[in-house]
Measured scan of single mutants.
Amino acid sequence: SLEGTEKASWLGEQPQFWSKTQVLDWISYQVEKNKYDASAIDFSRCDMDGATLCNCALEELRLVFGPLGDQLHAQLRDLTSS
């Protein structure tokens, strides 16, 4: 749920159509929501749009996002199937 936050830029759009900015917004949101240590994320490797993100295998997401990769992968699957 997104109570208390302004409507996120990526909400209501299919992930494969996200811009690079929307991807970063979504990642930041997941980091906050999961109380994850953002210093463990290599943000220089997050410079990708939604289509690229959706094409990432779980292993790739783990490389870039560490333990949060599993969470991101699961969330993406939910978003693309809805």
Rank of each mutant, 00 (worst) to 15 (best):
L61T: 02
L72G: 00
Y36M: 12
R45I: 06
S39E: 14
Y29K: 11
Q30T: 14
V64P: 03
L79I: 02
K33R: 08
N55T: 06
L79M: 12
P15L: 03
D78V: 11
Q22W: 00
C46A: 12
F17S: 13
L24I: 09
Y36C: 10
L72A: 01
A57F: 02
D47C: 10
A51I: 04
K7R: 12
L63D: 13
E3C: 13
T5Y: 03
L11Q: 13
R45L: 11
S44W: 06
N55K: 14
T21L: 14
E60V: 03
E3K: 15
L58E: 03
S82K: 05
K33G: 07
Q71K: 12
W26L: 01
Q22M: 10
D47F: 09
A40V: 14
Q71R: 13
V64H: 15
V23G: 00
W26S: 00
S19G: 07
F17M: 08
W26A: 00
D25M: 02
H73N: 07
E13L: 06
T52P: 00
R77C: 06
D42H: 03
S28Q: 13
A57Q: 10
D49A: 04
A57P: 15
A51E: 13
L63T: 15
A8W: 14
D42V: 02
L79A: 06
L68H: 01
A38K: 12
K35H: 11
E32I: 14
D70K: 15
L58A: 08
L61C: 03
F65H: 00
S81T: 15
T52D: 05
E60N: 07
S9F: 06
L79G: 11
Y29L: 04
L2N: 15
S9Q: 12
F43S: 06
H73C: 03
S44R: 11
G66Y: 01
G50C: 01
R62K: 04
N34W: 13
W26C: 00
L11V: 06
S39L: 08
F43D: 04
Q75N: 15
F65K: 00
L61A: 05
K20Q: 07
P15S: 02
V64M: 14
T80D: 01
L58D: 05
Q30F: 00
L11Y: 05
A40Q: 13
A51Y: 10
D42P: 03
E60L: 02
Y29E: 12
E6I: 10
E3M: 14
R62C: 07
S1I: 02
D70V: 07
L72W: 01
A40E: 15
F43L: 13
L61P: 00
A57M: 10
T21G: 10
L68V: 12
L79W: 05
L2F: 10
Q75F: 03
M48K: 02
Q71S: 14
I41E: 14
Y36N: 04
C54I: 12
S19E: 05
D78R: 10
M48P: 00
V64G: 13
I27G: 00
L24M: 07
R45P: 05
E3S: 11
I41A: 05
W10N: 06
S9R: 05
I27L: 14
T52G: 10
R45V: 10
D37V: 06
W26H: 00
L2E: 12
A8G: 12
V23R: 01
S19L: 02
G50D: 00
V23Q: 00
C46Q: 05
K20W: 02
L2V: 04
Y36V: 13
G12M: 09
T5E: 12
C46P: 05
Q16K: 15
A51P: 12
A74K: 14
A8Y: 05
V23A: 09
D25Q: 11
N34D: 02
D37G: 07
R45Q: 14
G12C: 02
P67G: 11
S44N: 02
D25F: 02
E60M: 08
G69P: 00
R77I: 15
F65G: 01
W10I: 14
V31G: 05
Q14A: 08
S82I: 10
E60Q: 08
G12F: 15
G66H: 02
Y36T: 15
K35P: 10
A38L: 05
Q71L: 12
L2C: 07
D37S: 11
L76W: 02
E59S: 12
L24S: 11
G69S: 11
R62P: 00
Q30I: 02
E32S: 08
E59W: 05
D70M: 10
L63S: 08
T80V: 12
Y36I: 05
I27R: 02
Q75K: 03
S82P: 13
E6P: 09
K7I: 04
S82V: 06
E32G: 06
Y36G: 10
L58C: 14
K7T: 06
L24T: 09
Q30V: 11
Q14F: 11
G66V: 00
W10C: 04
L63H: 03
L68A: 11
G69V: 02
N55Q: 11
T52E: 10
R62W: 03
L61I: 03
K35G: 15
T21D: 14
E60P: 01
W18A: 00
G4W: 04
Q30C: 10
D25Y: 02
A57E: 15
V31F: 04
A40S: 11
A8H: 08
D70L: 07
K20C: 08
G4V: 06
A74H: 07
D78F: 10
R62F: 03
I27P: 01
P67T: 08
F17D: 01
V64F: 03
C46W: 14
G66E: 01
W10D: 01
A51L: 09
E6D: 14
E59G: 10
Q30N: 11
K35S: 15
L11H: 06
S1G: 04
S44I: 14
E60F: 07
Q14V: 06
I41C: 11
A51F: 11
F43H: 06
L72M: 10
D49W: 01
Q30G: 02
T5V: 07
G4P: 08
H73M: 09
R45Y: 07
C56V: 13
T52Y: 07
G66R: 01
Y36Q: 10
S1A: 15
T21I: 08
E32R: 09
L11A: 10
S28K: 12
D49C: 00
W18F: 01
N34A: 11
L58W: 05
Y29Q: 07
C54P: 01
H73R: 07
L58Q: 12
G12A: 09
P15I: 03
L58Y: 02
Q16T: 02
F65M: 03
C46Y: 06
A40P: 09
C54F: 05
D49G: 02
S44H: 06
W18H: 00
L68P: 02
C56M: 06
L63F: 07
Y36F: 07
K33I: 12
K7W: 09
E3G: 07
F65T: 02
A40H: 10
F43Y: 14
F17E: 14
W10P: 03
A40T: 05
L2A: 11
Q30S: 02
L24R: 05
E32Q: 11
Q71E: 12
K20D: 04
Q30A: 15
H73G: 06
T21A: 08
S9V: 04
S9D: 09
D70C: 02
P15C: 02
S1L: 05
W10M: 05
N34C: 07
D78A: 08
L68I: 11
G69L: 01
L63W: 07
G4H: 07
F17H: 05
D42W: 03
D25H: 15
H73K: 07
L72E: 00
K7E: 08
S9N: 04
Q30R: 03
Q22D: 03
G12V: 06
Q30K: 03
K7L: 14
D42R: 03
D37M: 13
Y29W: 12
G4Q: 04
L68K: 04
I27F: 04
K20R: 13
K33L: 13
P67A: 13
S81W: 10
Q30M: 15
D25L: 04
I41G: 04
F17L: 09
S81P: 02
T5G: 06
C56S: 12
R77W: 04
L76Y: 00
G4D: 15
A40L: 12
A40G: 14
Q16M: 10
C46V: 14
A38R: 10
L11M: 13
